[in-house]
Design a protein around this nucleic acid. Structure first.
Length: 261
DNA sequence: GATGACCTGTGA
DNA sequence: TCACAGGTCATC
């Protein structure tokens, strides 16, 4: 599913290929996909005749600026993809369908030059918003400071995993990235956040950075060390211990009962 | 803060 | 045929 790393890949694709092209037409056949009262007509009015001037990202939210017009926000849910002129940002998407099916195109922006940018989302869990509000998102996980990690875990008795996945506290981390980061930090995902000692907070901060750079280099959230072991009988890549499977923060969680404490 | 609903393709 | 995947939101 798209987490911070995938959205960043979408952002780069958009920046590389969709900027400064005059928008001729907008198709939004799925009214469900337009959020917060936005209608197909309003989206069309906001875009047609303009051009995209920048692509930004905050957590898992992609923000595309339109020169002199309102910004468009795109959320990709867990199966959403961005396609520009038949170019995909990713080879495959974990848990998403990798079959091409134009019926899953929820929003298509056609450029005057004949190309287009489209959001393809089989499961319709994503959505497009006009002038999205980013105030309710925490700091972006890609530039998280040690001080911010300290503030994050301070005072919360929720499982540290739930805290890391709470987009209001820190934006961009999803189930897979969090499991991999906690595995790297050797911290049990179920630990109350505020029970972390200072050296564990440091380890967590380091682990989030390492996870993002390492998996980013490998090509996405699904390239984690834990990923091949996310199944019955999966083993810890460090010490070979059978992994534990639980539900924490409402999500399936894999962790090593031996070295994650 | 935890839980279930939303949505639907996939694989057993 | 059905459990399962999980980002987000409403509700408890």
């Amino acid at each position: 599913m798209p987490e911070l790393l995938e959205i960043e890949a979408y952002r780069r694709l958009f920046e590389d290929r969709a900027l400064d092209r005059r928008i001729a037409e907008v198709e939004a056949p799925d009214a469900w996909y337009l959020k917060e009262g936005l209608g197909a007509d309003a989206l069309r009015d906001a875009l047609v005749g303009g051009h995209f001037s920048a692509a930004r990202r905050h957590g898992k939210l992609l923000l595309v600026d339109v020169a002199g017009r309102p910004t468009v926000g795109i959320r990709f849910g867990m199966t959403g993809r961005l396609i520009v002129d038949e170019h995909h940002a990713l080879d495959r998407l974990e848990y998403g369908s990798n079959r091409p099916n134009p019926a899953w195109d929820r929003v298509v922006v056609r450029f005057e030059d004949g190309g287009d940018a489209r959001v393809r989302d089989p499961r319709r869990l994503g959505g497009v918003i006009l002038e999205p509000d980013t105030d309710r998102l925490g700091p972006d996980a890609a530039s998280l400071s040690l001080r911010q990690v300290r503030a994050l875990v301070e005072g919360s008795r929720a499982p540290v995993k739930a805290v890391l996945m709470d987009q209001a506290r820190v934006a961009g981390l999803g189930n897979l990235l969090v499991d991999d980061a906690l595995w790297r930090a050797a911290i049990d995902p179920a630990r109350p956040a505020r029970s972390l000692a200072d050296d564990e907070v440091r380890a967590l901060h380091r682990a989030v950075r390492t996870t993002l750079t390492t998996l980013g280099r490998r090509g996405g959230s699904h390239t984690g060390d834990l990923q091949p072991q996310r199944h019955d009988g999966g083993l810890c890549p460090t010490d070979g211990t059978p992994l534990r499977r639980r539900r924490i923060g409402g999500r399936t969680t894999y962790s090593c009962p031996r070295h994650q404490r």
